[in-house]
């Protein structure tokens, strides 16, 4: 992956894979409520994919300089395995940790390339993932950490 297009293609594919992942888990969970939540998560990933497609065609610009709040909730939670009877809390942890992993990946890649367009794109992608992570962490803070 040496060109901007290659990086963007990779990122777009990752978003699609994430959507596929949630749709796959949604097929296996036992309750309709959980299924709906996971399908909503899949939709969210598809929305991210659309944004990246727009970046590729030049209709949307990434903003690596934007400051994104990091609540650091997922950083200290134990990993959750997907299963048929995952709870909403589990689903959010999975989502937060996937976004965190993606953020770390783009950030690490950005550190390894020289300054330039590629670095700009990688840092921009990292910020996009940070935004996604904040979305799920804010939801976790609001819905799960009610008494805490």
């Amino acid at each position: 992956m040496n060109t901007v297009d290659e990086i963007l293609d990779y990122a777009i594919e990752q978003e699609q894979l994430a959507a596929d992942f949630y749709e796959d888990v949604a097929q296996r969970v036992e309750t309709a409520g959980m299924k709906k939540i996971l399908l909503d998560f899949a939709e969210e990933e598809k929305r991210h994919k659309k944004i990246l497609l727009a970046v590729k065609t030049g209709e949307h610009e990434l903003t690596p300089e934007q400051e994104i709040l990091d609540l650091k909730i997922s950083d200290y939670l134990v990993e959750v395995k997907t299963s048929e009877n995952i709870s909403y809390q589990d689903a959010l942890i999975i989502a937060m940790q996937r976004e965190r992993a993606a953020y770390n990946l783009y950030n690490d890649m950005a550190q390894k390339v020289p300054d330039g367009k590629l670095k700009h794109i990688l840092l921009g992608l990292a910020k996009e993932e940070a935004k996604h992570k904040l979305f799920f962490e804010a939801e976790y803070d609001e819905r799960v950490l009610t008494d805490n």
């Binding site: 709040l69 990091d70 609540l71 650091k72 909730i73 804010a138 803070d141 609001e142």
Partner: peptide
């Protein structure tokens, strides 16, 4: 504590 720009309750951010 960091204010929620959307007007929700302020969120705690861990200081590592």
């Amino acid at each position: 504590m960091v204010d929620d720009p959307k007007g929700g309750r302020a969120r705690p951010v861990l200081q590592e």
